[in-house]
Amino acid sequence: MTPEKRKDLLKQGAIWGFIVLELAFFSIAGQFLSVTDTVFLSVDNMLLLLQQSAPIGIIALGMTIVMINGNIDLSVGATFALAAIVMLDSMTWPFMQALGDWAIPLSWCFALLTGVVLGAINGLIVWKTGVDAFIVTLGSMLGFRGLVFAYNGEQPTSHLNWTLIDFAEAQFLGLNTASWFLLGAALLLWLLMTRTVHGRNAYAIGNNRDAAVNAGIKVGPHFLWNFMLIGFLAALSGIVFSSGTGSVNPNDGMLYELWAITAVVLGGTKLAGGYGSIVSTLGGVIAIQLLRKGLGYVGAGTETVNLVIGLILIAVLFLDRQLNRKGKEELKT
């Protein structure tokens, strides 16, 4: 095995090693500190964990692709909320109510369409104006949130539909609906990024944009597709979340963009683009959720969770830099 391959394996495996470490730590620490009698490393607990990872996880998967492209999307939280509102609200429309339970899939389509359209707006602006995606989506984060408030003011939007809640609570092969969505999306996106021309071009563009342009890859439309994809996923996340609760607040989804980016970076995706993987992001998502639950399990509150996640993110960055140092003769700039 060449040293390069070993290093690559180390990079890919790091997040899973971290997860194992977390599991071991919380299982052992739980023996002494646990505030409940349940076992941390139980199947039920792990399944619940997967389910709870779903909303941010699904967004983080899309964020991975956008970041591999060398872009970023800060507007996903607002898209999440707007899609959820569209879904719940659309079921109250007269013609939809006439459809009975068939309104559910239709309302989903509306919500997903909302996400795709919002993503397309971002993508088109990035493509046509050449303004950095960070700024474009920072703006649309505000703008989309404005649309959220425009819909229903500061009131929560609710609609109770028992069929929908039953579906959201349903289990299949032991996995909850939300978990299936997360895993399904992960599988499809993993196939997209590793098997298809679109996925490979995403890496090429993030890695060396000039080379990609010279090779005739249509970078603009490519960006557009990926922004539509992350819009779709943010909307999907909104559906998964609000189907279970039947209600959505106009402030829901705030800071999701930052959590999603945190998960993606923990998974090892490069900020500059060109490197990253869907599977590692899934690892990042699980690692964060594990940390939340684990710390809760040993009696630490949200405050510790926030503190620890923040510091771990910085530590990962620091380690990554140390691993990539060239040695003493490096130019000091």
Binding site: L258, I261, V265, T304, N306, L307, G310, L313
Partner: peptide, 12 residues
């Protein structure tokens, strides 16, 4: 990333 991490840490 540093300030993203600090956002969370300081909130903690």
């Amino acid at each position: 990333i540093v300030t993203l991490g600090m956002l969370s840490a300081i909130h903690g």
